[in-house]
């Protein structure tokens, strides 16, 4: 599935106004969405770029490499995300009482309910210039088991960090507008080895961007990326929304490389010298 994206920034002071405008534009009430994102990184270190080409001479007659692209793709490592849908009740209370005492996360759901956990992988956005950012994503809903254990085993991955996203969602035709901001738990997160099984209280979370600014993400999802007409209609709808919001929120293309989800190669000695935790 491909996502067409545009982003805009909303200062904290204008949040309520923008919320109302969006509600008017979409003619629906805002829907509050809370979610927790947990980021995982493959345990394997990425190979040095171009190392495959320089890997020594051979006496064999040069044959065409059968699948260089696939091999290259396999060599590229990506960060992956685990997303948990939350409600206000899921958070802990002020006085430190935890609501759940379970030691492991559980993605089990009852029949007829939507999944609470999903696994999400995002590609680096396309290089094409259509006026919107286009990226390939893959979302897998998890319906049972321990999502953390699943992720650890799937890579194999290791836990990097977790953060929370709060905001309001609107649906306007095929455009999904998500006005949100990122929260995180204060403290040294790099010491954590696994995501918290019981959540801290919502009020103890801190803003990642201390100015309190919100981000507006406008998204159109496209299944048939190969169909030019479908893609075109999606792009047009998103651009229409962009035009409609002009003067309220300036939606624009983010820098492609700022949305890079690949794991960067770091030379060993440099990594050791810097010693920067990721």
């Amino acid at each position: 599935m491909h996502e067409l994206l545009l982003y805009g920034q909303v200062p904290a002071g204008r949040h309520d106004q923008v919320l109302k405008i969006l509600a008017g534009v979409a003619a629906v009430q805002p829907r509050r969405k809370l979610q927790r994102c947990i980021i995982y990184r493959p345990q394997r270190e990425p190979e040095e770029p171009g190392s495959a080409a320089r890997r020594g001479g051979t006496q064999n007659i040069a044959v065409k490499q059968t699948k260089p692209a696939a091999a290259a793709a396999a060599a590229t490592l990506y960060y992956t995300k685990l997303i948990q849908k939350l409600s206000e009740d899921d958070f802990g209370t002020e006085d430190g009482l935890q609501q759940t005492n379970s030691t492991a996360l559980s993605a089990d759901v009852k029949d007829g309910e939507g999944s609470m956990w999903s696994m999400r992988w995002e590609d680096i956005p396309d290089t094409g210039d259509r006026g919107v950012s286009i990226r390939f994503t893959n979302t897998t809903d998890l319906l049972s088991g321990d999502p953390h254990a699943h992720m650890i085993a799937a890579g194999p991955n290791r836990f990097v960090t977790e953060y929370y996203v709060e905001g309001h969602r609107f649906v306007h035709g095929n455009v999904i507008a998500y006005l949100h901001r990122v929260l995180h738990e204060p403290g040294v997160r790099s010491l954590e080895e696994a995501p918290k099984t019981s959540l801290p209280s919502f009020s103890s979370l801190q803003l990642l961007d201390l100015s309190g600014a919100y981000m507006l993400e406008a998204k159109v999802r496209v299944q048939d990326f190969k169909e030019a007409a479908v893609l075109e209609s999606g792009v047009n709808e998103l651009k229409e929304f962009q035009k409609q919001m002009k003067g309220c929120v300036e939606l624009g293309l983010p820098d492609r490389l700022s949305l890079d989800t690949r794991v960067k190669y770091k030379p060993q000695h440099a990594a050791a010298a810097q010693g920067r935790p990721r």
């Binding site: 599935m1 649906v171 095929n174 479908v230």
Partner: peptide, 8 residues
Amino acid sequence: RSQLPPPL
């Protein structure tokens, strides 16, 4: 209308 639309 207010549900997440399926991908195009």
